[in-house]
Design a protein around this nucleic acid. Structure first.
Lengths: 337, 337
DNA sequence: ATGAAAGCGCTAACAG
DNA sequence: CTGTTAGCGCTTTCAT
């Protein structure tokens, strides 16, 4: 432990008051004589005193540490999603003066929640047990990016179904009929729902999509490249006129492959992404995409959790935020080149 | 605080032993009767008991929480560097059973280190004060990615100067004479050193580089795109035959722009990166780059810090790791197309 | 407005 | 191998 030898006693002695008074000024009780406040503040400064948080927590029985547990599967850290979550949660913790302890988990080791005021699960992938456990242990918890039905916990999710549908409707409205899709990891709820929403949307509009235009990706650029090479090597009659990638990153890769092969976007083919990653604005074409408010979701999750931890909220918080269509330059009506 | 009412006393009562014995089995003391271990473990399981970490810390005077403070400037979170740091630190904490509290900082608010066993600073950008403060407060701390001379702290850095030089030497050995460079943020030590090393390397080899071939970037893809457009619009006599981007991300963007403009890599122009980002292997050409072991550096930093925190290391740890050249397919001898 | 004293839940001598 | 007893540094009654 850091040499933090000076304790509240030293401060009290130096300020010639009781430790209780010192405690009071530390915790900004209103009932302290201004003179004493001054003396104590001065003593604190001179002694470079910093309260021992473990002691504070033990004595007060409070805990403003929250855990952020992220699925640890390979590649997640390179995704826009993960970064935005970390940023959003980190930012909110900073402003609420909460400590965030960060956990990468593959779901195998049980989570030690004993020193956590609450925990935020960034998606549930292979680690539903941990959520169940936290819930069983009565630790306030909240799940991000996942509509959870089987456990009675709070969540803030994105309506990915609607996002997929939005994409389908937009592309079809542009006259596209041969629309390829590069899915995310279908074993995740987000991946599945986007695909599901897209297909249902297509279906409702009486358009059919052949199986060969569905490429099972995994959010990686690598899988997008494979998909693009596959689609672009098709002969004219079968080749898609539009491709909907389930992440902006993948869409960007599709565009890159297109240019490498001398195919222009959007003139020769329309490309649509999902995320609204700012990176996607500065390429050769600004990307048309489905925006999902990840940062906001992450921030909100901290605020809600904090309310639960502090007892200001007793009931569960369960919402699915709507994504929205962001039209930029990478999609054109079919035949408009 | 999470309802964690059951305490060590309850366990002791239930197992019919003293709380000390319970404490001993919790902390895996070797000297406990197997029978008692069993009884205690059972009681713990039945009661769903989880020790109160604040109490443990207060009583033992230890603290296995470490802080990771990252500079909060825009864009950092989208960099390979930041992600690798988080991954590496997170991973090492996981295996050392340390808690990592994550801090995004613009360097303005002072850092509260009172509950931190130690602190890792991921680079120093605008926040040298915080490092100084932690050092003054006697909190074990370690700086990553920065050779720090003016404060007496430990650091693990990368020899970026050497990295830049390596790039210069390789490109020159390939016969290139008009070599463009897209720098990172020159106000960071890493950015400056890479550039410095590169220029010195060029210089030693008696090659001159005109000012117009130096583009002041900032690690963003956006700046790389600007740079590429600028370089590629030059007439044949002035146009560079190779470009060295100070990050793989930027190099990838250069390649993308090249293909968009019908310029082939490496046939028409050689491109070199810096990082060894796995993303850079799957593009149209596998990227030749300078590898810097960021993940390893991050992991190592946790281990070293942990030694400092636990008193197993008393002197400062100060190293600069060597980067290495990774030759793949994006650079060709000049005129070899 | 202030202080004395009793814990918070646990670990660490110290005996036995 | 086990239990008793002090604290760790702070907050919180309860008096004053």
């Amino acid at each position: 432990m850091a040499s933090n030898r000076i304790s509240i006693k030293d401060v009290a002695r130096r300020a010639k008051v009781s430790i209780t008074t010192v405690s009071r000024v530390i915790n900004k009780f209103p009932s302290v004589n201004p003179r004493n406040i001054k003396k104590v503040d001065q003593a604190i400064a001179e002694l470079k005193y910093r309260p021992n948080i473990s002691a504070q927590r033990l004595a007060s029985g409070t805990n403003n540490t929250i855990g952020l547990v992220m699925p640890g599967y390979p590649g997640i850290f390179h995704s826009f999603f993960a970064i935005e979550i970390i940023r959003g949660v980190g930012h909110a913790c900073e402003s609420l003066r909460l400590d965030m302890v960060f956990h990468i988990s593959d779901g195998n080791n049980p989570l030690n929640t004993s020193y956590l005021g609450g925990v935020i699960f960034a998606d549930i992938i292979e680690n539903a047990k941990q959520v169940q456990q936290a819930h069983d242990e009565n630790v306030p918890c909240l799940v991000i990016n996942n509509v959870v039905e089987d456990i009675d916990v709070s969540y803030i999710a994105i309506n990915n179904f609607k996002g997929g549908k939005l994409a389908a409707e937009y592309l079809v409205s542009l006259g596209h009929r041969r629309i390829a899709v590069i899915t995310g990891n279908l074993r995740t709820q987000a991946g599945f729902d986007r695909f599901d929403g897209f297909m249902k949307g297509i279906d409702e509009l009486k358009v059919a999509i052949s199986k060969e235009l569905v490429f099972n990706g995994d959010y990686s650029r690598r899988s997008a490249r494979q998909a693009a090479e596959y689609f672009f090597s098709m002969d004219d009659a079968r080749r898609p006129t539009a491709v909907f990638a389930h992440s902006d990153d993948m869409a960007l890769e599709v565009i890159a492959v297109a240019y490498e092969m001398g195919i222009r976007v959007p003139e020769d083919i329309s490309v649509m992404g999902f995320d609204d990653n700012p990176q996607a604005i500065y390429g050769p074409v600004a990307l048309t995409t489905i925006r999902q408010p990840v940062f906001e979701m992450a921030e909100k999750s901290v605020r809600v959790l904090h309310e639960m931890v502090t007892g200001k909220r007793d009931q569960k918080y369960r919402v699915a935020l709507d994504p929205e269509l962001v039209v930029r330059d990478s999609c054109l009506p079919v035949g408009a080149s």
